[in-house]
């Protein structure tokens, strides 16, 4: 760290088009605080003071943040439901997929009714139904997901 580094650092801190660094958020906030302090030289002379301030601020934030997060989690766990399942269930019942649904239901009845000596399976019918349902649900699903 030479003399010119200090000068360039100061200039960089003062310019409005300062570059964004890939640093951890905590470090960034510290940097920002430092730059703020650079602009007000009085605060820079007494670092112990603002460090103390910062810790108190952080601890107060944690105190506020934790119980809220827990409450939200509990709410989420109760309410959380997969939009894909819901949309595909709706699509399965819709008019669009009625023919394939009919075929699938018929197949299921036939196969379950046949007993032990049946060699048929409903995989193909299930494929057609699943394809219809997911194709119908795809755009709606993407509008709901983040």
């Amino acid at each position: 760290m030479g003399f010119w580094d200090t000068i360039t650092d100061l200039v960089e801190a003062a310019t409005p088009w300062a570059t964004a660094d890939a640093e951890a958020p905590a470090a960034e906030s510290k940097d920002m605080e430092e730059t703020r302090n650079m602009r007000t030289p009085q605060a820079r002379r007494i670092p112990a003071d603002w460090e103390g301030d910062k810790t108190t601020v952080e601890s107060s934030k944690e105190d506020e943040g934790e119980p809220e997060a827990e409450e939200e989690e509990e709410e989420d766990e109760e309410e959380l439901s997969d939009p894909k399942e819901k949309l595909e269930a709706e699509c399965t019942e819709s008019k669009q997929c009625a023919p394939v649904k009919h075929h699938f239901d018929e197949c299921v009845e036939r196969v379950t009714g046949a007993g032990s000596d049946n060699k048929e399976d409903c995989v193909e019918e299930f494929f057609h139904l699943a394809h219809c349902a997911s194709a119908c649900a795809a755009p709606k699903l993407w509008s709901q997901l983040k």
Partner: peptide, 25 residues
């Protein structure tokens, strides 16, 4: 995406699923 979300609640009637395997269309 389809593979991860496409597990049905139960395999369709008559489908044979091997031992230790799960049905995924």
């Amino acid at each position: 995406f389809s593979l991860l979300t496409g597990y049905p609640e139960e395999a369709p009637a008559g489908a044979s699923v091997g031992e230790g395997l799960y049905f995924n269309p």
